[in-house]
Simulated assay, not measured.
Amino acid sequence: MPMTVSELRHDTNCFFSKQIGSIFFISISITFISILVNMLIKPDMHIISIIENNKFMNFNSLLELINNMNLDEKHELLKYSIFKIVELLMSKTLLLGSMIALISHLSNNKKKSIIYSISSLFASLPSLFILNCMVTFITQLGFILFIIPGILLSILLSLAPIILSFKQYSFIDSIRLSINISWKNIKIIGPGVLFWISGKFILTAILSNIYFINHNVTFLVLNISTNILFSVLVIYLFRFYMIFLRS
């Protein structure tokens, strides 16, 4: 019997409802880790104020903003940008690894101890981080070229971290296999990835335009919400790949 989107959605909803406490704990914990990292490694406040006061919405205004900076400000902006990219990749990797460890632990009917699952999580984080860097770089190139290629690449590469977590393939093989499987099952994987992209966009648009709530509270709610949304996507993709392997 072939897989269907409704079947995967039902399985995802069941898992989410049963593990909602663990998922919320993971999402909130990673959000606070991100906040702590931002507090410990604080970039130049002058650069942050320049970025926040120049709410550029297109490429031309970004170039104009950079051109109006002096050499020291450009250097600080570069350091700040690199820091934010690495911090976001680390947060995504930790969330992804935590969700994969949780699902794997429960899928094995808890035959392996929670200590083993945690140690496996930390052992897999470097590999997941490298793969996330590769996937993010490729998908961002797609978004720079045009929105549609970026969305398509996001769908085609979405399974790569799940495939890598089974420790049977290398980085390149995981990416290649993800593209192959996702292309053949794009009608099943596509809705899950599109749900994640549209959900993140809607949440960001809504919370960014709420001015009567403190900025820090908005940042906290937005990060926790997007982490939960991404967790739902990981559950959906992991369930798909498990059924795919059995078929």
Rank of each mutant, 00 (worst) to 15 (best):
T31N: 02
F32T: 05
S34E: 13
I35H: 03
I35G: 03
L40N: 03
K42Y: 13
K42C: 02
K42A: 04
K42M: 11
P43H: 06
P43G: 03
M45K: 10
M45C: 07
S49H: 15
I50Q: 11
I50F: 03
I50N: 04
E52T: 13
E52F: 08
N53Q: 07
N53L: 00
F56T: 07
M57F: 11
M57C: 02
N58M: 01
F59K: 09
N60Q: 12
N60E: 13
N60S: 10
N60F: 07
L62C: 04
L62S: 05
L63G: 09
L65H: 04
I66T: 08
N67K: 09
N67M: 10
N68M: 06
N70P: 03
E73M: 10
H75P: 00
H75A: 13
L77Y: 14
L78T: 14
K79D: 08
S81K: 07
F83Q: 11
F83M: 13
K84I: 06
K84R: 13
V86E: 06
E87Y: 06
L88G: 10
L88H: 13
M90V: 15
K92M: 13
T93Q: 06
L94C: 05
L95M: 07
L96M: 12
G97E: 03
S98R: 00
S98M: 05
S98F: 10
M99R: 02
I100A: 04
I100S: 02
A101L: 08
A101M: 05
H105S: 08
H105R: 00
H105G: 01
L106P: 01
L106I: 13
N108S: 12
N108P: 00
N109W: 05
K110Y: 14
K111S: 12
K112F: 14
I114K: 01
I114L: 15
I115Q: 11
I115K: 02
S117Y: 09
S117R: 01
S117V: 15
S119Q: 09
S119G: 01
S120N: 15
S120G: 11
L121P: 05
S124K: 11
L125T: 13
S127V: 12
F129C: 00
F129Y: 12
I130M: 10
C133F: 12
C133Q: 01
L141D: 04
L141E: 04
G142P: 07
F143Y: 15
F143H: 07
F143W: 09
I144F: 15
L145G: 02
L145A: 09
L145F: 15
F146H: 03
P149D: 09
P149W: 14
I151R: 04
I151K: 00
L152P: 02
L152R: 03
L153Y: 13
S154F: 08
S154D: 10
S154Q: 04
I155S: 05
L157D: 05
L157G: 07
